[in-house]
């Protein structure tokens, strides 16, 4: 048994050495940490096509859901570093080790960033009976009634939860969190008036606000979201506030440079594709391409900020 583990541990090195100049010679697998049909899966399938075309090989999407999206990066981090197993990750998984303990990877050390594809703006929304229409009014209202309001979160230390905690911290607000199991139940609680506020994806917020059920107070990106210019970002009130989940491609650490370069080129070409950008926008994502080195430079800071907030809210 021990020998088998050793052999498995050696696999990445063997495979890495075996990569010839001809990469890619077979289809590439893009691993997603969520089930088919969800937002991440949709993004994966949309991006796989143009990126595969640029690569000259098909990119197959593989869903490995579980443990809040941390099973997939754990799997990719331990896969052969040959460029045939890539991970479509998001910010939540990068703080997995802080939130869940040992998950078998480290977001910085275990991976090499290929490209950032998009950010998914979150929206702070208020129930229809709440007297606030923008971030400033929200801050004033909560300040005038400290400890009075509840907001819905889709789970402890989710980015939605952390975004509100960071906002409350920066603005000096007192409001209480109530956790639900996922985004839909928290939206339901907002619709039924059980809670006054919630943070949800901009896409979900839009359809409910068009139905007149909720008011969108603001978005968590630094800049207004294209197509939603009338909604002010939180950063209008709290300078520099940035709490938008990012989506990116990573490969296991130890992947040969030539392979990394080939993949970076392929995703750059893919992100220049107007069709892809349009379909990302249509689904409430903001196409925000970042080259691998740029992402590698930004990521540690991003993880640091989220981790600090997560540590503050988690029980010890």
């Amino acid at each position: 048994m021990r020998g088998l583990f050793k052999a498995l541990a050696m696999l990445p090195f063997l495979a890495g050495a075996a990569v010839a100049d001809g990469y890619p010679t077979k289809p590439v697998t893009m691993v997603v940490g969520f089930s088919a049909g969800g937002g991440m899966d949709t993004l994966a399938r949309m991006a796989a096509e143009p990126a595969g075309a640029a690569l000259g090989q098909q990119i197959a999407v593989e869903n490995r859901p579980g443990a809040g999206g941390t099973i997939a990066p754990g799997y990719v981090a331990n896969a052969a570093a040959d460029g045939y197993t890539i991970w479509l990750g998001e910010t939540a998984a990068t703080i997995g080790p802080v939130v869940h303990g040992d998950v078998g990877y480290d977001a910085i050390d275990s991976f090499i960033p290929i490209a950032q594809l998009a950010v998914a703006p979150l929206a702070l929304v208020a129930g229809k009976d709440v007297a606030a229409t923008n971030i400033q009014e929200f801050v004033d209202l909560v300040k005038a009634n400290p400890g009075e309001f509840f907001y819905a979160s889709p789970g402890v230390a989710t980015l939605q939860h952390l975004a509100v905690e960071a906002l409350a911290d920066a603005a000096g607000l007192e409001l209480d969190v109530v956790h639900f199991k996922g985004g839909s139940p928290s939206m339901q609680a907002l619709l039924s008036g059980e809670v006054s506020f919630a943070v949800v994806s901009l896409n979900a917020a839009r359809s409910q606000s068009e139905g007149g059920n909720v008011t969108i107070l603001g978005v968590t990106t630094v800049d207004p979201v294209p197509g939603f210019e009338e909604i002010g970002p939180v950063s209008d009130v709290i300078e520099g506030f940035d709490a938008a989940p990012r989506q990116f491609i990573m490969v296991p650490a130890g992947t040969p440079d030539a392979v990394v370069t080939t993949l970076r080129d392929a995703f750059r070409t893919a992100m220049e594709d107007q069709d892809l950008r349009d379909s990302l926008s249509a689904r409430g994502l903001v196409p925000t391409y970042l080259d691998g080195p740029d992402l590698a430079a930004e990521l540690p800071g991003v993880i640091e900020t989220w981790s600090a907030t997560a540590q503050a809210v988690l029980p010890n």
Binding site: G66, H100, D102, G155, V156, F180
Partner: peptide, 20 residues
């Protein structure tokens, strides 16, 4: 699995698959 209200893991024994 993870307790919804506090985020504490119960009986997961460090196995990531038991987190949910």
């Amino acid at each position: 699995g993870t307790d919804i209200s506090t985020g504490v893991q119960r009986y997961s024994f460090g196995v990531p698959e038991f987190i949910t």
